[in-house]
Design a protein around this nucleic acid. Structure first.
Length: 370
DNA sequence: AAGCCGTGGCG
DNA sequence: TCGCCAAGGCT
């Protein structure tokens, strides 16, 4: 075989490469909790959390999620609000809903056990080719290749693939390579090692080829092109948006609104807000806040103001938030609105920015706060 | 098949 | 402050 197959990697000494790579991995690997478990469900959870998300961020969620939803059944049966609240701050909230949908399919069609074939895994919502391959190799040590950000970069350099790594043709080529060089006897460590190499040494910028155990196999290194591969993407356009929001307070309660379908963070909660032009003056912003209060059927005083800046995908957002001391209306607010005790609001599913707003008002409302 | 979906850290 | 980056999948 080359040693495991011919084609685009005709002369590549795959077995020797993998042995060298895995030996390095065993010495250098980080201790990560999802590598310490053999529970396929826990590995599934970690892989979904890690999609487009840094290890450091996931470390703050992983154990808590598993202690709250220890089994496929617990997740399948969880109320959505509780699920989203646990996920709150992790981002890409569709992942949480897909993960629960996947858990329900696993209960209904696979007797509660994570399936062990690529086809069955890829049929689960939120699980694509990478995640399916990761579960196959990490959880079951079955020979499924993977291609994701790290390994794609490693493979592109290793074989000097100069085209953009995201183009469909390149993606196909990288999957082919990944399959060709995958050792049938040790797919788990091999795949882990490819990713770990990309993370620790074969980094996006400033690759540290001195640390690399397989530089002698690397076509880009030999050509001195490791810094040119893969080529940088064109910068993404950004838009700016501005909102005026109110945080109605009454007797230790805050008013929150369920975000409607079709908007960012749909189904989660936020403090009421409205879009305003980028150019509004402070006076106009204050008037907008007053009008917003009225439209909620509230009367109250705007007592404090603060701007929050955050990003949602490609949108740079400024939220001008007004704290409002209100009289609670006799009539209950609309169905999407809810008064909640301040100290329980944190248990709601909130986006990251809303969580910061909540921290602001909570701190202010505590005795002695300012 | 581009565009969408979140967030925090870092240079 | 700003742009880039990180264990993608879906439409």
């Amino acid at each position: 075989m080359t040693e495991f197959g011919p084609d685009s990697t005709p002369d590549f000494p795959a077995a020797a490469f993998s042995r060298r790579l895995v030996r390095w991995y065993r010495r250098q690997k980080r201790a990560l909790p999802w590598r310490e478990t053999s529970d396929p469900y826990a590995i599934l959870v970690s892989e979904v959390m890690l999609q487009q998300t840094t290890v450091a961020t996931v470390l703050g969620y992983y154990a808590r999620f598993l202690s709250r939803f220890p089994t496929v059944r617990d997740l399948a049966e969880a109320p959505e609000d509780e699920l989203l609240a646990v996920w709150s701050g992790l981002g890409y909230y569709r992942r949480a809903r897909n993960l629960q949908a996947a858990a329900r399919v696993i209960m209904a069609q696979h007797a509660g056990r994570v399936p062990q074939t690529l086809e069955a895994l890829m049929a689960l919502p939120g699980i694509g080719r990478y995640t399916a391959g990761a579960i196959m190799s990490f959880a079951f040590n079955k020979p499924s290749p993977i291609v994701e950000t790290n390994s794609a970069r490693v493979l592109a350099r290793l074989f000097c693939v100069r085209a953009p790594v995201k183009s469909p043709a390149t993606v196909r080529q990288l999957w082919h390579i990944a399959e060709q060089i995958l050792p049938p006897n040790n797919p788990r460590e091999h795949n882990y090692a490819l990713m770990e190499l990309g993370s620790l040494a074969c980094r996006p910028s400033q690759p540290d080829c001195v640390l690399c155990p397989v530089s002698e196999f690397c076509a880009a290194f030999k050509a001195g092109e490791q810094r040119l591969i893969p080529p940088a993407d064109a910068p993404a356009a950004r838009t700016r948006l501005r909102f005026v929001g109110v945080v109605p307070l009454n007797d230790g309660h805050v008013l929150v609104a369920r975000i409607p379908q079709g908007e960012w963070h749909a189904g989660m909660f936020e403090f009421p807000k409205v879009p305003v032009p980028l150019t509004v003056s402070d006076v106009e912003a204050r008037e907008t806040a007053q009008q917003l209060l009225q439209s909620l059927g509230l009367r109250g005083n705007l007592v404090a103001f603060r701007e929050f800046r955050y990003t949602v995908t490609r949108h740079s957002i400024t939220l001008c938030a007004w704290m409002a001391m209100c009289r609670r209306p006799a009539r209950p607010p609309g169905k999407a609105l809810r008064w909640v005790p301040l100290d329980e609001a944190g248990k709601l599913p909130l986006g990251s920015a809303q969580r910061r707003v909540l921290a602001w008002v909570s701190n202010d409302q505590r005795p002695g706060g300012t």
